[in-house]
Design a protein around this nucleic acid. Structure first.
Length: 881
DNA sequence: TCGATCACG
DNA sequence: ACGTACGTGATCGAC
């Protein structure tokens, strides 16, 4: 049966461009949209096996078929030059694929596709439209499906009339009514103000179409909504018209011409070479396609090692070699080990755990630092194996860290996604192999062994491609001198763990229980009824319906009951204070008493966190199971939790050192603002100094209110300031906040200049970097959507600051671990909390460490201003203040 | 599974 | 005019 595939070329190119990092060839040609387009095409050809295929493009000036609305598409951002220059390449790509392309002067791709699907409908052809544009769902019919790309262009979601019914409860043609009511900012379709997807769907479910809604305005529920509809009748009608895809374009195309018989492998591979798509080369058949039989590369082969045949394979253990340690479970402090996948040029092996641990040659090879290993998450391997008394040394490349550095926005890279980007072998996701949630179970050994061998092969194949891209981004040092050594330092810290006094926690829990019980009683009495205080919904009903308190802020689901709202409501009713305390204590009990107790390791009686080195967009670490980076400190009751964190050896001390104002110091350095640099060089209290400058007073005249406000301004600066954000924080008007900011910028003109420059730079490059070349892509920086763009602009200002601070403390940690080793100290580094390091220290090393730790931290990186670290110690983390 | 809330820097 | 502070993770209730 024939299958006609129609591709919306402009939409796919746009999607691909904004979803992928701005890659370029060594000659400086941008290729990310071409790459995304290619990936999509290969997928479509393989999965849909079209007999006919074509790609439609917009061409020339779009004819204003809606002359009554000249703004049409006016709000659309100009196509950035980095994308426009790729369109000729995409045309070349299609020619290389032997795929027919089509454009029509004065018409958009939508119109061409709309017209062709109409013909297809009339002739009973099975047709699929590929696009990123939801508007196109209106074309769906019995014969026509629409495939929407997701996550950029890597995934496809197929819509038939059934799916549209399930997802929206609408018929395909009603998608037009949906757009008419809710509008579409990216296409500059206005819609009805105040009507979003939810409201629009509700209206359509009731009335069926825009026209019917407009005829029944009086029956619509909601005064405001009625008013909005009444005032925007014309807008709604026009929006619907704008959203309607033209199906009568003068397309003169003989569908038979789009018949597809495959591509010429040589032409296509030449094109890939020119684009430097190395990982794609092996995915295509280089001989000309023949009978359509899959003439793929040799099937994947691997061998399973047994106790009997192991010796025969000893000489296959080479350097370098890819190693994947397959474990059963996500938390490697507890996971049993399944076995090892190994891979090199001409060999793929699987060594089951029972065989591995008895195989001497293998264990020696594994522990031999001169035998180079390539891994995926070497920290996981190191710690996981350490729990089973096995050493792994010589880790020389970590594809997990590498792929994170290349794109930090896609957090927690998985091996299956890395493989699909950089390797030829296909790796199934762990979820697919093990099942997820309650359905998780350990699969058969042959499934596991193949899975592990695939992973090792994927590592092996990815390394050369990753190396090349790292070089291009100037990230080799960042990986080799920062992230990779850091991962081994973190491995030590995680395996070491931190001692937690369980009895102390239990005792605090008992006290909390008593207080919570008392508070619960009080709250029920004040409310006149019992309810679940932990449910924002039920609490909202009590506060705003029963007690009739004013609603100051709303969330998507109802009135907000968050702490900042409750604080403002406190004067109205005594129940508020009780609720605030209940929340505070409840949090302590569930998260920090019960949660932390659950995490105490049965084997070591300590807590062993997992530091995630590839999660954050800025380069910071994060900590889970348990999160030791958010242990309370601001309120005294919570801070007491820190009394339970104690040294693991008799007579030792806890020592904590934190950077003072590291982010503002970094801002001083990178902005080069002379005033800010001067302030830090003179060792001044930066908030007081800011208050002096902003309020124009002398040091003695700075009141505590002025200092507090200046402090908030400094925070705002680091976050990428806005008058609204500052006004919320300080509870002042927007105007007042705006005045503060203006005064700040007139005093710190260098900071202002830097902020303007960095946003400009980000718009140009599509990314920002830290001092050590860490990179964050900002796909929304050129968005026409004000919110998205503003967010990206604030991120452009914040990320270099927060990210450089992360770089600095990471450097300090590496130096610190080296120093401990060199000096033969017994002290151990246990925790990192963004700008703080925590150690346990024997008494006779206290004096040494009190000097050494700040010294190492302060000299981690030389800036135009001094770095400063304060150090404290005591018998618990609480006392190290 | 998601949103609200709140703990940290 | 637009509607927000930057970066995380854990717990709970509601769906």
């Amino acid at each position: 049966m024939s299958h006609f595939v129609l591709i919306d070329g402009n939409s796919i190119a746009n999607r691909a461009f904004y979803a992928l990092p701005l890659l370029s060839t060594s000659a400086g040609l941008h290729t990310n949209a071409v790459l995304g387009f290619t990936t999509m095409l290969l997928k479509v050809l393989e999965e849909m096996k079209p007999t006919h295929i074509m790609v439609a493009f917009d061409a020339g000036k779009v004819v204003f078929r809606h002359s009554e609305y000249a703004d049409y598409k006016g709000g659309r951002a100009k196509t950035p030059p980095e994308l426009s220059e790729q369109f000729p390449l995409i045309r070349e790509l299609l020619d290389a694929f032997s795929i027919k392309r089509f454009e029509l002067e004065g018409y958009e791709a939508d119109d061409i596709i709309g017209t062709l699907t109409k013909t297809a409908d009339e002739q009973d052809w099975k047709t699929t439209v590929i696009t990123g544009d939801k508007d196109m769902l209106q074309l769906v019919s019995e014969h026509v499906s629409v495939a929407l790309t997701r996550k950029g262009v890597s995934e496809i979601e197929l819509y038939t009339p059934q799916e549209i019914q399930e997802k929206y409860g609408l018929k395909p043609l009603q998608i037009i009514d949906l757009k008419g009511l809710m509008g579409d900012t990216s296409d500059n379709i206005p819609g009805v103000p105040g009507v979003g997807e939810k409201t629009a769907l509700k209206l359509l479910h009731e009335y069926g179409s825009v026209e019917e809604v407009l005829e029944n305005i009086d029956r619509v529920s909601g005064k405001k909504l009625q008013e909005n509809l009444r005032e925007n009748v014309d807008k709604a009608k026009m929006s619907k018209e704008l959203a309607t895809i033209l199906r009568e374009a003068p397309v003169e195309l003989d569908v038979q011409e789009t018949g597809y018989t495959g591509y010429d492998g040589v032409t296509l591979s030449d094109f890939f070479k020119k684009m430097e798509f190395k990982s794609l080369l092996s995915k295509i058949k280089v001989e000309a396609p023949d009978d359509g039989q899959a003439a793929n590369a040799a099937p994947f082969q691997y061998e399973v090692i047994s106790a009997e045949n192991a010796e025969k394979y000893a000489d296959k253990l080479t350097s370098p070699m890819a190693v994947y340690v397959e474990m059963d479970g996500d938390n490697y402090h507890h996971s049993p080990i399944v076995g090892f996948g190994l891979s090199a040029d001409d060999v793929n092996l699987f060594v089951p755990w029972d065989v591995a641990k008895e195989w001497k040659a293998f264990c020696q090879w594994l522990a031999d630092g001169s035998q180079e290993k390539w891994t995926f998450d070497g920290k996981r391997d190191t710690v996981g194996l350490a729990w089973h008394e096995l050493d792994i040394k010589g880790i020389n490349f970590d594809v997990y860290l590498a792929s994170y550095l290349l794109n930090a926005t896609e957090s927690n890279p998985t091996l299956d996604s890395i493989a699909s980007q950089y390797a030829q072998v296909r790796v199934r996701s762990d979820e697919e192999v093990y099942g997820k949630g309650a359905k998780r179970l350990l699969p058969e050994m042959d499934v596991l062994s193949e899975h592990a061998a695939h992973k090792a092969a994927a590592i092996w194949q990815s390394v050369p491609v990753l190396r090349e891209q790292l070089t291009e981004n100037q990230m080799n040092e960042l990986l080799n001198d920062l992230e990779a050594p850091l991962s081994m330092v973190l491995a030590l810290m995680e395996k070491q763990g931190i001692k937690v006094n369980r009895d102390r926690l239990t005792q605090m829990g008992v006290e909390l229980d008593a207080k919570l019980e008392e508070l619960t009683k009080q709250i029920y009495e004040l409310a006149g009824t019992t309810f679940n205080i932990n449910s924002p919904k039920q609490l909202g009903e009590i506060l705003f319906d029963v007690l009739d308190l004013p609603v100051l802020k709303k969330t998507k689901t109802g009135p907000s009951t968050s702490a900042d709202v409750l604080e403002k409501l406190a004067p109205y009713h005594p129940i508020i204070d009780a609720i605030l305390i209940f929340r505070q204590l409840g949090k302590l009990r569930s998260t920090y008493i019960e949660g932390l107790t659950k995490e105490i390791h049965s084997q070591s009686s300590k807590v062993h966190t997992l530091y995630n080195q590839a999660t954050t967009a800025t380069g910071r670490l994060s900590s889970t199971e348990p999160n030791l980076q958010n242990i309370p400190i601001r309120m005294e009751e919570g801070r007491k939790i820190r009394e339970a964190f104690i040294p693991s050896e008799e007579g030792w001390y806890m020592l904590a050192a934190d950077y003072s104002q590291i982010e503002l110091r970094i801002l001083a350095h990178i902005s080069g603002d002379e005033n800010l640099i001067d302030a830090f060089r003179n060792g001044m209290d930066i908030h007081t100094r800011t208050a002096m400058d902003v309020f124009g007073v002398s040091e003695e005249q700075v009141t505590s209110l002025m200092r507090r406000q200046a402090k908030a301004v400094n925070f705002g600066i680091v976050y990428g300031i806005s008058d609204y954000g500052l006004s919320q924080n300080l509870n002042i008007t927007r105007k007042e906040a705006g005045d503060f900011i203006e005064r700040y910028f007139s005093v710190f003109a260098g900071v202002k200049q830097w902020m303007e420059d960095i946003v400009k730079q980000a718009k140009q490059d599509g990314f920002v970097t830290t001092l050590l070349h860490r990179r964050r892509y900002l796909p929304d920086i050129r968005s026409s959507n004000f919110n998205l763009r503003s967010f990206a602009e604030r991120t452009a200002m914040n990320t270099p600051i927060q990210g450089t601070a992360a770089d600095v403390i990471k450097l300090a940690m590496i130096r610190m671990q080296e120093a401990l080793q060199e000096k033969g100290l017994k002290s151990r580094m246990l925790l990192q909390v963004h700008d703080e390091l925590v150690f346990e220290v024997p008494q006779d090393e206290l004096e040494t460490m009190k000097n050494l730790v700040p010294e190492v931290m302060e000299s981690a990186l030389e800036l135009q201003v001094p770095l400063k670290a304060d150090v404290n110690f005591g018998h618990s983390w609480y006392d190290a203040k």
